[in-house]
Design a protein around this nucleic acid. Structure first.
Lengths: 100, 100
DNA sequence: TCAATTAGTCAAAAAAAGTTGACTATGGGA
DNA sequence: TCCCATAGTCAACTTTTTTTGACTAATTGA
């Protein structure tokens, strides 16, 4: 027989908290609540953040389904990160967090 | 004159997410929702956790006001960690998190 | 074809977080 | 006084996360 069911105890809440942990992800996500994000714009806007960290954070938020990555075919090529449906489901969470 | 107001942009939500980030804190906090926590009991109960990490996590949750540390004067001396009022204000957050 | 702009990647280094094992502190009860 | 249990602390080490700086890729207007 395989392993005994050792409670890995990853409940939804813990999973989301895990995704939103990290130095930049909460801030990125909050900004995403206000509208689409763009890479170089974030680089200027987010105090102290660097390319690599932003890239990693955005990638994780996309991979976990909280943000969508959208390519916009304009003059120098734009990429927008927008809230996914799953991302929108976090809106009430942030609303509650503001009351703590 | 001092520094220009550079948005440190630590909003309440980000602050709470920061406190709840870390390998063990979400789980500890969730357990605290069900009742008082005790050190050695957590050590057995929380799969894979070690003394130091639990001690550090509990201390931070107490320092930030989410848990109360209560000394119970019984036979071998017990210490209980219970939800503070501030801690209780996170209950709706966790409820919302379960819906994501 | 060349330079400019956007949006990144990569590898190495530094910093932060987590783990380990030995040790400490306090209060009873025998 | 000695021993046990609870509840930790401490310093060294390992692992994970974050940062740095150089480099890459795609598109497009001159």
């Amino acid at each position: 027989m395989g392993k005994v069911q050792k409670s890995e105890s990853i409940c939804p809440a813990e999973e989301v908290l895990k995704i939103l942990s990290g130095k930049w992800k909460p801030q990125l996500f909050k900004l995403a609540l206000d509208g689409p994000l763009r890479f170089n714009s974030l680089l200027r806007q987010v105090e102290g953040a660097n390319k690599q960290s932003l890239a990693t954070s955005l990638k994780e938020l996309v991979d976990e389904g909280f943000l969508n990555k959208v390519v916009i075919r304009v003059k120098p090529l734009h990429i927008e990160y927008t809230l996914s449906e799953k991302g929108k489901s976090l809106i009430p969470v942030f609303k509650q967090l503001e009351c703590v």
